[in-house]
Simulated scan of single mutants.
Amino acid sequence: MRGVRAGSIQSAVRDAMTAAGGLECTSIDLGVSVATLSYGTSVDEARPGGLGVNYLDRLGRMHCAAALPLAQHFAMLAGGVYQPLQISGDTATDIHTVTREFSDVLASHAEAHSSASDNPDDYTVQEASAMIKEVDELIAAAARLKAALLPKAGA
C-alpha cells in the first residue's frame, strides 16, 4: 500500500484494510480491484472522494477491527477520542463499578500530588501514564453503564 501521512484519512483507510487482512483480502471482501483500493488511499485532487464511505461501512461491518481506525480518525476530527469498549456477556455495569473506578482516579490523583511524589505540584510522566489508565477505566465503566441504560430508556 501507499505511504501516507499519519493522522490522515488515507492512513485510517490503510489501517482499516490492514485490520481486514490486507489489500488483497479487502479486495475480495468488497468485490473491488486491488488497483481501485490502492487508488482509494491516494491523495488525488482529480478524484478527492477516495474510497467511498459505503465501502468503508461495508468493510467495518464485515471486520469490526477495520472500523476501529476509522472511528478513531473521525472522533479526532470531531475533537474527541474513540474509546473501544470490551463488552461481553452482561453489559449492565452497575453504579458500584463506576464508583470504584472513580475512587481509583481520586487515589491516583492524591498519590501524584502527595509529598511522596517527585513533583507534588504536577504529574510526573509515570503518574500521568497511571492516571490516564485509571481515567480510561472510568470512562469505559461509565460508557458500559450508559450502554446498558439506553435500551431501558427507549433510546
Rank of each mutant, 00 (worst) to 15 (best):
P120H: 03
I139H: 11
Q72I: 08
G80N: 10
T93L: 07
P84C: 09
R14N: 04
L149I: 10
G79E: 14
A92Q: 12
V98F: 02
Q86F: 08
M131R: 14
A78C: 15
E45D: 02
V4M: 05
H96S: 15
V53C: 01
K152R: 12
D122F: 11
P48A: 10
S115D: 06
I9V: 12
V53K: 00
L70T: 01
C25K: 11
M1Y: 00
D121T: 12
A110L: 14
A71I: 02
A143T: 01
R2I: 07
V13E: 00
R144P: 00
F74G: 01
E101N: 09
L51Q: 01
A12T: 08
S129R: 15
E111T: 13
L138D: 04
L59N: 09
G31L: 08
L37T: 00
L77W: 06
V32W: 02
P120K: 00
G31T: 06
A16R: 00
F74L: 13
D44M: 03
A140I: 12
L23T: 07
I139E: 05
I9F: 07
Q83W: 06
L85I: 14
S103A: 14
T93A: 13
A155H: 13
E45K: 15
E134W: 06
V53I: 08
G154I: 09
M76Q: 09
L51C: 08
E137C: 09
S108D: 12
G79I: 05
M17V: 04
V125F: 06
L77G: 11
H109I: 15
I139F: 06
L56N: 01
M17Y: 08
P151H: 05
C64W: 11
V34P: 05
D29R: 14
V32E: 08
G89K: 14
S33T: 10
S11I: 07
M76N: 11
H113P: 07
H109W: 04
D104N: 12
T36C: 01
V34L: 03
A147Y: 07
L138K: 00
L138P: 03
S33P: 03
T18R: 12
S114A: 04
Q72G: 14
R58K: 13
L77P: 02
A147K: 12
G7C: 10
T91I: 07
T93K: 01
A6Y: 06
R5K: 15
S129W: 02
V4Q: 08
T93P: 01
Q83E: 05
G40V: 04
M17Q: 01
E45V: 10
S108H: 09
H73S: 02
L68F: 07
Q10C: 11
S114M: 09
G52N: 04
A65F: 03
A67Y: 02
A141Q: 12
V81K: 06
G22M: 02
L59P: 02
T26I: 05
N54K: 12
D57A: 10
Y82V: 06
V81M: 03
A142L: 13
L106S: 09
C64A: 14
A19D: 04
G49P: 00
E101M: 08
I28H: 13
A143E: 03
A67Q: 08
